[in-house]
C-alpha cells in the first residue's frame, strides 16, 4: 500500500527541522493575511527559507490561502501566488473561490487543496472542486468515519483527514474579546491581550473549556478537546486516505514533535503489517496521554459520534 502523507503545522524554521527528524512528510505554513488559524507565522521570505529546508529533505510544503477574503485583500492574491510559484511550493490551500480566479490571473500551475473546513461534507463537492483545479480535498472534521470512507470511495482527488489536534468551531469577523473588554470598560485589556493565545471560554453547563483568540481574520473559538485517533487508524488505512494531518495550533513545538513521532510509528507499522500496528497502538496512545496538557482532554472528534439535525 501507499503510505498516507503525514502533514504537520510547524511554528518556526527550527521546528520544521525537528519535525523532519520526527518523520513528517509535509508541512503547512503561511501567514494570517492569507491563511486561517496557523500554528506559526511565515512571511514570504520565511516561506522561501522553509521551502529550501523542506525540499532539501525531500518533503513537501503547502501554503495556506484559506481565509475568507474581503475586497481589500483580493488584489494581493495573484501576486502572492506568483511569488509562491517562483519559490516552488508544492500546493496552495484554499476555501474561497476568489483563489481560483486569482490563480488564473496569476497564470501559475500550483496544485490547489480545497479546504473550506466546516462545509466540506460530501464527495460530490470534492469532485466539483477537483474539476476546477483542486488535487486534494480536506474534509470537514465534523464527519463520521463511515462518511469519510464513503467520500474516499467516490472521490476523484486526494482526500486529507485530520487525525489529531484541535479543531475550529467558530469564526466571527468581529473582535469579540476586544468588544467584551470595551463593554466592561477595560480598554487597557484590549491592547494588552490583543495577541494572546492563552484565553478560553468556560461553559459551566458542560464544564468545557473552549480556547479563543483574535487575529486579522476575526475571532476564533476551538474545540474543548483534542482529537486523537492514533489507536483507531485502521479504517483510514484500509480506505487508503491520502493524507493524515496533525493540527498543531495552540500547542507547543515539543508536543507537536512528540505527537508526530507517534503517528510516524503508527504509519510505518501499519505499512509493515496491520498486526504490527495493532501491537503498538495502545502504547502510542499511552505515550500521547502522558504528554497531553491537563487542560486539553483527548477524544475521538466526530469519527464515532452521531449528530442529528
Amino acid at each position: 500500500m501507499t503510505k498516507p502523507e503525514l502533514l504537520v503545522t510547524p511554528q518556526s524554521l527550527s521546528h520544521i527541522k525537528a519535525l523532519i527528524e520526527a518523520g513528517a512528510d509535509a508541512f503547512l505554513i503561511g501567514e494570517q493575511q492569507f491563511g486561517l488559524r496557523l500554528a506559526g507565522e511565515f512571511t514570504i521570505e520565511e516561506v522561501r527559507e522553509a521551502t529550501a529546508i523542506i525540499h532539501n529533505a525531500g518533503k513537501k510544503v503547502y501554503v495556506a490561502m484559506n481565509a475568507i477574503f474581503h475586497n481589500d485583500r483580493v488584489d494581493a492574491l495573484a501576486p502572492y501566488m506568483k511569488a509562491l510559484s517562483e519559490i516552488g511550493v508544492d500546493g496552495i490551500v484554499f476555501g474561497d473561490p476568489s483563489v481560483i480566479i486569482a490563480r488564473r490571473e496569476a497564470d501559475v500551475n500550483i496544485p490547489l487543496h480545497w479546504n473550506p473546513e466546516t462545509i466540506a461534507t460530501n464527495w460530490f463537492q470534492a469532485n466539483y472542486w477537483g474539476k476546477r483545479g483542486a488535487t486534494r480535498a480536506v474534509l470537514a472534521r465534523e464527519l463520521s468515519m463511515d462518511e469519510i470512507v464513503e467520500i474516499k470511495e467516490n472521490a476523484e482527488i486526494e482526500i486529507e483527514v485530520q487525525v489529531h489536534g484541535m479543531t475550529c468551531m467558530f469564526q466571527s469577523k468581529r473582535p469579540l474579546l476586544g468588544h467584551y473588554f470595551l463593554y466592561e470598560g477595560k480598554a487597557m485589556e484590549v491592547e494588552n491581550r490583543k495577541n494572546n493565545r492563552n484565553m478560553f471560554l468556560h461553559d459551566p453547563e458542560r464544564n468545557s473549556k473552549y480556547p479563543i483568540y483574535e487575529d486579522l481574520n476575526g475571532t476564533h473559538i476551538f474545540s474543548p478537546n483534542d482529537m486523537c485517533i492514533i489507536d483507531e487508524l485502521d479504517e483510514l488505512f484500509e480506505a487508503e486516505i491520502d493524507v493524515f494531518k496533525i493540527e498543531g495550533v495552540l500547542h507547543t513545538e515539543e508536543y507537536v514533535v512528540a505527537v508526530t513521532e507517534c503517528y510516524r510509528k503508527a504509519i510505518d507499522a501499519y505499512t509493515e503489517s496491520p498486526d504490527a500496528y495493532f501491537d503498538i497502538k495502545e502504547e502510542l496512545l499511552a505515550k500521547i496521554e502522558e504528554i497531553q496538557p491537563e487542560l486539553r482532554p483527548l477524544d475521538t472528534g466526530f469519527f464515532f459520534k452521531e449528530t442529528v439535525y
Binding site: T118, I119, E142, M169, F170, Q171, S208, P224, V308, Y309
Partner: peptide, 23 residues
C-alpha cells in the same frame, strides 16, 4: 449570526446537532 454563516459548528460540539443541516 455572529459567526460567518456556515463556519460555525458550536451546536455540533455542544449538543451533537449539525448546524449546517438545520440543527
Amino acid at each position: 449570526c455572529i459567526a460567518y454563516s456556515g463556519r460555525c459548528v458550536l451546536s455540533n460540539h455542544m449538543t451533537a446537532r449539525d448546524s449546517n443541516r438545520g440543527g
